[in-house]
Design a protein around this nucleic acid. Structure first.
Lengths: 212, 212
DNA sequence: AATGAATCGATATATTTTTATCGGTTCGTC
DNA sequence: GACGAACCGATAAAAATATATCGATTCATT
């Protein structure tokens, strides 16, 4: 939950961008040359105003009565989230969740390339998972330095989280995407994005309960 | 992003509850009999006031100078998110992500029990994945009705999302946890919790970029 | 060319969420 | 038993986010 890090761009806006990207890609494929905030609103159950604000934050410009150029807007959004120059990442923890993430095709679209996985369990190492090599964690630092990786994906169990995070920090990573349920403690200079599956489950559970 | 559904309890509060539950469990195991909002704040980088508000929403009561009874608070939070009476779910889409979720141990803790998986690819059916049976999707309705399942987990690809969602709705499910990147269209009576991995990735990417 | 509908961009308002403050309670210590 | 520190609970203020409104622009139609 370390999501508070003020800086101009509202967090909710950032989170909506990938959704816009998604539908934009669809529309582009369908040959839609221009798109309006009204279109987005209809497709995403949002208000046009909000879409306009979001797009403005991303630096997009549209024309009255027309909307935005589909292709140009897509590029702008990609640039905005830094997905134009594809970011490379390493993954630590080649368990069930790690394996799934390694195999998840969807990330390519967002310019994320997971280069390799690392694990403490040396029996897993040497093999490949979804075509990605698995190395022992003691090789992490060397690998990260050599390949200039700035992002680490943490998919270890709760206990393993802190040591694994330490290893990533030590290796020189700049941001950690933490899928483990544990809170990790890192220097301020490193950004942690906590991915909390249980949060979504809680929301769903509460909502279902409310309707009964 | 269909997260807007007003109802007393703030969404951010709901999302923080599982985090509280997590540390509470740890503390309980360590033999901590009472906990204060100051403790939470220190462990989670939050403000004590906020924790107090959240706990108040959940209906917890504490004592000045003491805090909250660890065990009692844990029970209260579980009850609040409806995790006291374990909710059963089916999963649709036994691909990479689906497999990971089927194997994810963490959910038991939150009272979620995935009973079975369903897939259109009949070659996958008949087998078990992480001890959960995989059935053809045409058996979904019958299974859901028979077992009184109220929750569906959607882990299919973008194209498969809408038909799969339709099948879940048709089967009589009340809430859908949607891990696919597609927006699905369902009747108002059904709650959809969109789990958007790309959102977290976007936040991380933007933050890293900002620091450079 | 004038009219009107669609839509952007900017500004203003409302709502939601977070943070601060303050009074009151409990308990350890003197 | 009085004093002070830790803490809850409630209320108030501030900050962030979402929504509404309005003027300006573009284009299709008359």
């Amino acid at each position: 939950m370390k999501e508070q890090q003020r800086s101009g761009i509202p967090l909710p806006t950032i989170k909506r961008i990938p959704v816009y990207v998604s539908v934009l890609e669809k529309w582009l494929k369908e040959g839609k040359e221009t798109v309006s905030t009204t279109d987005f609103a209809a497709a995403l159950t949002l208000k046009p105003v909000q879409v306009r604000k979001d797009l403005a934050f991303a630096g997009a410009e549209g024309k009255p009565r027309i909307g935005y150029q589909t292709e140009e807007l897509l590029k702008t959004l990609h640039r905005f989230v830094g997905w134009n120059n594809l970011s490379e990442a390493v993954l630590v923890g080649a368990g069930a969740l790690g394996t799934a993430i390694l195999g998840y095709k969807g990330f390519d679209r967002f310019g994320l390339k997971i280069k390799a996985a690392f694990d403490i369990d040396e029996s897993k190492c040497g093999a490949t998972v979804h075509d990605k090599p698995v190395y022992p964690i003691r090789d992490l630092k060397q690998y990260v330095k050599k390949n200039g990786i700035i992002m680490g994906i943490l998919t270890v169990s709760e206990n393993g989280a802190q040591p694994a995070a330490d290893a990533l920090v030590e290796a020189g990573i700049q941001g950690i995407w933490n899928f483990s349920p544990a809170q990790i403690d890192v220097p301020d200079s490193i950004f942690v994005q906590q991915e909390d599956l249980a949060a979504g489950l809680a929301v769903l559970a509460v909502r279902i309960k409310e309707r009964q």
